[in-house]
Design a protein around this nucleic acid. Structure first.
Lengths: 146, 146
DNA sequence: TATTGTTATACTCTATAACTATA
DNA sequence: TATAGTTATAGAGTATAACAATA
């Protein structure tokens, strides 16, 4: 029996979101780490280049809401692993265009397939309607903090 | 126009969950940090003691799924801030019973009220039905990783 | 002066092994 | 031997200020 002012921590959204995010990230995290030795920001940058093609750091930062310092370091790592190449823009030499190498694209293709099947697995566990509703609610929350 | 094999990163559940968790945690995180100078694990331990009363580290770890080393450090910090006291169990001297001090309870009461109003705010932004469905889906995901 | 990207630095969070003291 | 809790250490993630090069 609970008191009038009872508070259920396990229903508190920020707490619950963290638990779910951590649990659902673990499996995928191990995959990109074990297979390619990359970290969170690095796979996110890899995916942006895989999905949208050639981009510069600024654009990636805007789309993924990642700070430029994180991107800078992730790009260095991905370059060291020969997953991307950098080309200075010819008219504005502050800009660097990033492109996946064949190796980078192969890693992306592999991880994307994995992400897709893992996402399907999670969606199936939730049920299709529930999964769609979940995505919508999460996007609302993510956008609130703009 | 998207290719057949297009993958929308922003619909990938682990990614989306992280974005929403981070966004929704920020505001509350600043509150407990600015007001009481405590960190994530510390407020979680504080809340467990506030909600359930006297507990030992093991019990907190089981309920909150926090590793014992994290709890150990959080308890030390909370003790330094005079938010809790430790009492060795009389029959099994390996056990330490943790109890909030009046200061600890005051901090809990303050933060709990804040958490409640923040949670209401988030729920209202989502709509009541959607918020309930969200909580249910998140609990399913959090429990999957047991 | 403003912008793109880099470097330095500090703090937060997580994971694991090894340890103590008790049982 | 097993358990409750501690310490040490490393790795991963985040945040911010200051900087160089270019516009």
């Amino acid at each position: 029996m609970q008191k009038k002012d009872a508070f259920d921590l396990h229903l508190f959204l920020p707490y619950l979101l963290n638990q779910a995010a951590e649990a659902s990230s673990l499996k995928f995290q191990r995959a990109y780490k074990d297979r390619y030795g990359i970290l969170r920001t690095e796979w996110r940058v890899l995916f942006h280049l895989g999905i949208y093609g050639r981009m510069n750091a600024k654009e990636i930062g805007l789309r993924a809401r990642i700070h430029k310092t994180k991107i800078s370091r992730a790009v260095q790592k991905l370059e060291q692993r020969r997953f991307l190449t950098r080309d200075t823009d010819t008219t504005d030499r502050r800009l660097e265009w990033l492109t996946l190498t064949p190796q980078g694209r192969a890693a992306y293709d592999d991880l994307r397939a994995l992400a897709q099947s893992y996402d399907s697995e999670l969606s199936a566990a939730l049920g299709p309607g529930e999964a769609a509703a979940l995505r919508q609610a999460l996007q609302k929350l993510a956008d609130m903090a703009e």
